[in-house]
Design a protein around this nucleic acid. Sequence first.
DNA 1: CTGTTAGCGCGTTCAA
DNA 2: TTGAACGCGCTAACAG
Lengths: 374, 374
Amino acid sequence: MIQPVSSPHDYAQSPMPRRAPENDDQAPQALSRAPATADRAPLPSRAPTIRDVARQAGVGVGTVSRVLNDSPLVKPDKRERVHAAIAELGFVRNPTAHSLSTGRSHAIGVIAPFFTSPSSAERLRGLSTGLSERGYLLLLADVETPEQRAAAFTDLASRHAVEGLIVISIRPTDAELAALARERRPTVLVDAAHRALPHVATDDVLGGELATGHLIAKGHERIAFVGDRLPAPFDLTSSERRLRGHRRALRRAGLKAPRAYERLGGHDREEAREVAAPLFELPEPPTAVFAASDVQAIGVIEAAERAGLRVPGDLAVIGFDDIDLAAVAGLTTVRQPLRESGRRGAELLLAAIEGVKAPVEAIEPLTVIERRTT
Amino acid sequence: MIQPVSSPHDYAQSPMPRRAPENDDQAPQALSRAPATADRAPLPSRAPTIRDVARQAGVGVGTVSRVLNDSPLVKPDKRERVHAAIAELGFVRNPTAHSLSTGRSHAIGVIAPFFTSPSSAERLRGLSTGLSERGYLLLLADVETPEQRAAAFTDLASRHAVEGLIVISIRPTDAELAALARERRPTVLVDAAHRALPHVATDDVLGGELATGHLIAKGHERIAFVGDRLPAPFDLTSSERRLRGHRRALRRAGLKAPRAYERLGGHDREEAREVAAPLFELPEPPTAVFAASDVQAIGVIEAAERAGLRVPGDLAVIGFDDIDLAAVAGLTTVRQPLRESGRRGAELLLAAIEGVKAPVEAIEPLTVIERRTT
DNA sequence: CTGTTAGCGCGTTCAA
DNA sequence: TTGAACGCGCTAACAG
């Protein structure tokens, strides 16, 4: 399959500098090594199949298949001839036919808002590592718009051969769950929880408590929150849960949690900057801000600086995630093991694929990393 | 294919809350809507095929296939019955069989050091957008180690059904080119050039000239360079070419380019910090530094601060790429259209796949973005 | 319009 | 050991 049998692009697709020049405008005929004997076969322009190899080697296709799969029950001499034929023809096994026959694709589908959220990219990193170690590759479905989201859930698994699905930072709706169920593929959620699916989640409420608790311990009493608008672009409800933890921490400390101190906006730096700005015009401005993500925290810092405030002198700021940026910016933050969560997700999914009994839920630990902004 | 026929995980894999409770411990039987008539068929535990659908609908498989592919020549009533059967059975077409039959997978393989280099991640973003708009998904092969690199080039296309390959920030060796040729798949390079392959590249030499030229225009005469060690982890020779441009700019301005001012190290912030530090101990320390990437530039700034230098007061710094971080850090840099390069790569590859004549080479424009570090 | 049939390329019995 | 034949699920060509 997928042999662009003879494209008009050979000029650009023939990276075999040591090829006989007289064929230069012919269809690509990969690895025509030993042209001395290459005239034995007509050199079909289509990609060679095991049948071609079998013919060339003078054996049956079964034997070729066995050689291909390192079966021990092939006599050395035949094995040798098969290998020679393979090299001669430049044979590569067709992955699709292989998959159809074996029922395996060694590919995992991943649905996530990778690029709008550095944290989900970092999770992807752990995922990629965990999967590739086990011989799987991942098929990426980025989700930035509602259309993409819909397409991802209904199309990914039904249009592509994947053995399982990982969904990052998105809590599937009931309809999406139904779509997933139709795919009949094991599915694992990362950075989201659902009672019907294995997942690796973060205790965001606790995280919110930790963050605001840290601020309280520093002596702050007027503490604002900057997070995601509700409903978020999608239901990244982590921000909502962190806000809940924030309020709880304030309540426990007997502090006020005025609604004017809760500023919700978009995910990125710019929007965070804008929604944070009015905080500093308040008659009683906050002395500290907990931002639901590091990216938003940076926005808050920018807003503060524009308002002539110094951080942490005039305003303390704590973020969430501990992405690379946090270290660079000297941002105090609540660290969650992003990369590790990807790995855990991979483990959970592979266990499910292999039918191994595994925990359905994994909760990742959180710690406050104190830097220069508090 | 890939039906985990009835895994021990049903407890976690049955996201159909509105299912009849008496079947709750049975194999997942996706979308068993209208259970009133569900007793018609024995509900095989394996996934239904078009044959099952055909039988259920009382038509031939050809008709089912036509309905599946929106062929106009199917009478409405039959079409209706087929749709009903599909819903009844929870049928989803097997992507592998579809691929084998059509010769298309709608997947593109991507080889790149995604996670060690923010710039390649950003390129991936453009790529992802460009491909998904055209109905392709991408199969990710991250490359962080030499082993991964070898595996990526020899395995990706031969073990997975991809219609083409994109290689980012890696210049294939001759052996790798041969492997690519064997795969018989159109291949496009992004952020690398090769005369045998279509590619979208950056004029790094020019970029180096621009960067150092900017510093010279600012009145600096002692300008150092911090970039990648040679040979780089892989041949990300962009750093090398930028160094060449740097030297050229100095030469043209009649300035010295002492070897002690050229500091080469790893790709990340920490290493850049370390290799940059000795610069500030020199009897005649530089007054400005051109770093081959923004990440390295941040490392240089950190080193300068640790040495008690202020930026840009005591030391000017210019980076390369203009990743998000640069804006946050207020870093002056040479901007290259990262995301756009991914899009261009996608275009080039899709053109090749579709057999359309397209330019073999695309060069991306560069501009100096002046911020607070120069 | 629609049912039937022949592949797509590979893995895997099942005899020999 | 090995070759031949069948099946994986779907599409497409062909006859009706």
